[in-house]
Simulated scan of single mutants.
Amino acid sequence: MMTRAYIFLNGVGEKEEFYKKLDFKNSSVYCADGGYRQCLKAGAIPKEVWGDFDSVSDSEFKDLEDSDIILRKFSKEKDSTDGELLIEYVSSKNYDEIYVLCGLGGRLDHELTNINLLFKYKNINIKTEKELLFSVDRKYTFINKKNKIISFVPFSDEVRNMNLKGFKYPLNDYLLKRGDSRCMSNIVCSDEATVDFNTGRLLCILND
């Protein structure tokens, strides 16, 4: 059976209809600090809540202490964000799928950091109502995504020998450089499409 985890951060939340499509009951749910509030709005019950709890009210923290939810409290002075500490932990649990919710919006510095964490930890995706963000590790195959809009953004100075097959705008052995917008808003035109490259760091944004 496939295992799945959701991680709530403290970015911008989604509409109720979006959360209803997610299977929280058969998944493990985690929260980082103020993500606990987002989790409650989504109607989910977290397994663990991590953080220094500077984004949680006294009454909310009291409710957490009185519950069966596992709490991990950290000092405000630390070398990583609450979100990264939790993402590192959940990533080590070997779930088949890990989705970060409320990871975008809010403070820009946190948003950019959350996106960069996709390259540091394995099998992490940022999911919103309209988009799915993940890093591509040399090769990825899209199945049954015909007519979906997909963008590729370089997160290194160069992405070498990049190929796109099954897309409206294919590429062959392309050198994608930082700041290059060549791979924005491509369209899948077949039942199976692939992206592959030799070296570099590549972010995929699937408009879902």
Rank of each mutant, 00 (worst) to 15 (best):
N123A: 04
L86T: 03
R72T: 12
K120P: 05
D109P: 10
N94I: 02
D82Y: 00
I98W: 08
L108Q: 14
S75C: 04
N116G: 04
S92R: 05
G83V: 01
S75K: 01
K120R: 12
K122F: 03
Y95N: 11
C102L: 05
K78V: 02
E111A: 15
K130M: 04
V100D: 08
L85V: 02
L117D: 07
L118Y: 06
N94F: 09
L118E: 08
E77M: 06
L86K: 04
D96W: 07
Y121K: 10
L104V: 13
L118W: 03
S91A: 14
I126W: 09
I115R: 13
H110C: 12
N114R: 11
K78D: 02
F119R: 11
T81F: 02
L101R: 07
K130A: 08
L104R: 13
G83H: 07
T113G: 15
L117G: 10
S80H: 06
G106D: 08
G103D: 06
K120H: 12
F74Q: 02
S75R: 03
K76N: 03
V100E: 11
Y99G: 06
G106K: 07
S75G: 00
H110M: 14
I98A: 13
N116W: 04
K76W: 00
K73M: 05
R107G: 15
F119W: 11
L101T: 04
L71I: 02
L108A: 14
D109M: 14
K78G: 01
E111M: 15
S80R: 06
S75M: 01
K73V: 05
N114A: 08
N125A: 03
N116V: 00
H110N: 15
G105S: 10
K127C: 04
L104M: 09
K76H: 01
L108F: 15
T113L: 14
L104P: 08
G83Q: 08
E97Y: 07
K73T: 07
E97K: 14
G105W: 04
H110E: 13
K93A: 11
T113A: 14
E97C: 06
K78L: 00
E97F: 12
L108K: 13
T81I: 00
K93S: 11
E97I: 02
V100T: 03
G105D: 05
I124S: 06
L86G: 04
K78A: 00
V100Q: 14
K122R: 09
K93C: 15
Y99A: 10
V90N: 11
L112Y: 15
E129C: 02
D96G: 10
